[in-house]
């Protein structure tokens, strides 16, 4: 079964234009000018259940906007979205029970509470009974090794510990799809590696579909079997990790792909440069 189906998805934002300085401000009040920004422009793709997908692109390419439409945060202007067979615009709440989200730069935890109290709160949000929550917290705490700091207020935790807690909080209700928006941002290499292996484990043991955006090539390489690159609101590449290198070199006219030494980073950079900057924000 397909976990995510997206057809011809679009979203535009209207942005008020304002010239610099006092005169500009006055002008903006008297005669406001708006500019359309096409954040997502006719995007279509599908994700199988249990897949691990990297959804990447340069800043302002439309990654976050797409994720937000998939999770029901933003309302699309055009096209269709189905996550686990549910339309996020129509049955947002029903969908919310089945998906989890981690936004690396935005915190959903209460900082003055301990991770344990936070998890209890999220348990209540997802209608878990006290007993169910207890069992699930214990299970996740063991797996994510939270034992030593589960009773320390979140504001006293290190960034790595916090991110682990953020991920646990979003897994409390056993989501079928997990959306990760730059989960390893700002972390040191050891913690990054630790987070990655935990995500791998989740995928293996609970068959969770992983939808990941990241600027970190390591994340993508280690975690994902498929990659979608968006730029200027459109998909410019959708390929399996295995075939990516081969297809890329064929496109370049290189016959013997095995002999050529090209890294994923080179390919991504090349795709960004070729397609991007035409509609730079």
């Amino acid at each position: 079964m397909q976990a995510i189906r997206v057809e011809n998805l679009s979203k535009t934002f209207r942005v008020k234009k304002k010239e610099k300085g006092m005169a500009g401000s006055i002008k903006a009040i008297l005669h406001p000018q708006t500019e359309k920004i096409q954040a997502v422009n006719g995007v279509s793709f599908q994700v199988e259940e249990g897949e691990m997908l990297a959804f990447i692109g340069p800043n302002g390419a439309g990654k976050s906007t797409t994720i937000k439409m998939l999770t029901g945060i933003l309302y699309p202007d055009g096209g269709r979205v189905e996550v686990l067979g549910i339309d996020p615009t129509k049955k947002r709440k029903q969908l919310a029970y089945q998906i989890g989200t981690v936004f690396g730069q935005k915190e959903q935890l209460w900082t003055h509470l301990t991770p344990y109290d936070n998890f209890r709160f999220f348990g209540a949000i997802y209608d878990l009974s006290e007993r169910e929550a207890e069992v699930r917290i214990e299970e996740l705490a063991k797996r994510f090794e939270l034992g030593t700091f589960i009773d320390t207020p979140v504001r006293n935790l290190s960034l790595g510990q916090r991110i682990r807690c953020e991920i646990v909080a979003s897994l409390i209700h056993k989501p079928k799809v997990l959306f990760l928006d730059e989960p390893t941002i700002g972390l040191d290499p050891v913690v990054k590696e630790n987070i990655r292996s935990l995500i791998m484990q989740m995928n293996r043991e609970e068959h969770t579909t992983i939808f990941l955006t990241s600027h970190d090539v390591g994340d993508i390489e280690k975690l994902c079997r498929r990659i979608i690159i968006v730029n200027a609101g459109q998909i410019v590449l959708d390929d399996s990790m295995k075939k990516l290198k081969e297809h890329y070199l064929q496109g370049k006219g290189v016959e013997d792909s095995a002999a050529s030494d090209v890294s994923l980073e080179d390919i991504i950079m090349d795709v960004y440069k070729a397609e991007g900057r035409t509609a730079a924000v």
Binding site: K68, T71, G72, I73, R92, K93, Q94, L95, A96, Y97, I99, T101, F103, K106, Q108, I125, Y126, D127
Partner: peptide, 12 residues
């Protein structure tokens, strides 16, 4: 800043 509430299965 409404994002966090929109992904919860509760009344926004």
């Amino acid at each position: 800043k409404l994002d966090a509430y929109l992904v919860q299965p509760k009344n926004v």
